[in-house]
Amino acid sequence: MNGSKSEDSRSNKAIKRNKTYAYIKRYWTLYLLMLIPLIYIIIFRYIPMTYIQIAFKKYSIVQNVWEMELAGNYGFEYFIKAFSNRDFLYALRNTLLLNFLDLLIGFPAPIILALLLNELAFKRFKRLTQTIVYMPHFLSWIIISGLALQLFAPTNGLVNIVLNRMGFKSIPFLNDPAHWVWTYVLLGVWQSIGWNTIIYLAAITGINPELFEAAAVDGAGRFRRIWHIILPGLRPTIVVLLIMSLGRILGSEFDRPYALSNKLVTSVSNVIATFVYTNGIRGLQFSLTTAVGLFQSVIGVIFLTVANAIAKRFGERGII
């Protein structure tokens, strides 16, 4: 608290402090308002974080988290246990695989859709399409998986029935691991594409219209305008969203893989979230799964900061 030694810096600090006090005094109502979200964050975000230590301790339901016994290997017993568990390693691989494909295909898709929608001349049709494409965002994965079964089941699914009638063989959309991965990714795109488009469309609206007019005067066509005006205009938005997606590369949804999975595709559908569910929540190994969760978060933070640093190096603003 009173760490500074030289007189100069102390007086400097004193001035600064006075300024801050004056500032707070003047805008205290605003600070009071901020207190509400702050309390929320403390109670629901920071306090729960103290329970991270479960990852390093032997969990017991009757003991206070501070009193639990430290786990073996200097507390790293459960990390070692996780990494020597083959199911966890498979889950890790699958999580990376599915999230990477999601990023590869799911990330550019809404950008392209936003560009397409933006070029539509007939405004009413544009609005209608936009509304329809973002509808699936409000469907839960349980409902989508039910729809998927109705459509893609090998003998009873509508799509396969049509294929069979036309003389083609059934496509194992859901019952072959390789096909399942694509079904999983494409259903994800279908569900989220419209919703993610909104933010890009908003960014496009923010581009100065004079640029378009000038380009038109210079004789630039549609593609030239997209390439030289819209895409550069979207770049900050794209970068921010990309950094955030990279932060989630090891994060894993539970309901999507769990609802879409079945016993024939477990080799690709078992992800970290489902591993945590079977072993932790159902198998009562809370320390093990907290360790897994902590590992996920740490990797997520690393990805986030690295991506952020790279973005900054290339002259973008970044998010941190």
């Binding site: 801050t20 702050l38 403390i42 109670i43 920071y46 306090i47 103290t50 009757v62 003991q63 206070n64 988290v65 501070w66 009193e67």
Partner: peptide
């Protein structure tokens, strides 16, 4: 400054929780 206030709050609050838990713990014991 804000950060340090936050930190203190967090520590205080978690200390309180620890105390609170202790009481219930006795029944478990």
């Amino acid at each position: 400054r804000l950060f340090s206030i936050l930190l203190i709050c967090t520590l205080l609050a978690s200390g309180l929780i620890a105390c609170g838990k202790k009481i219930t713990d006795n029944t478990g014991g």
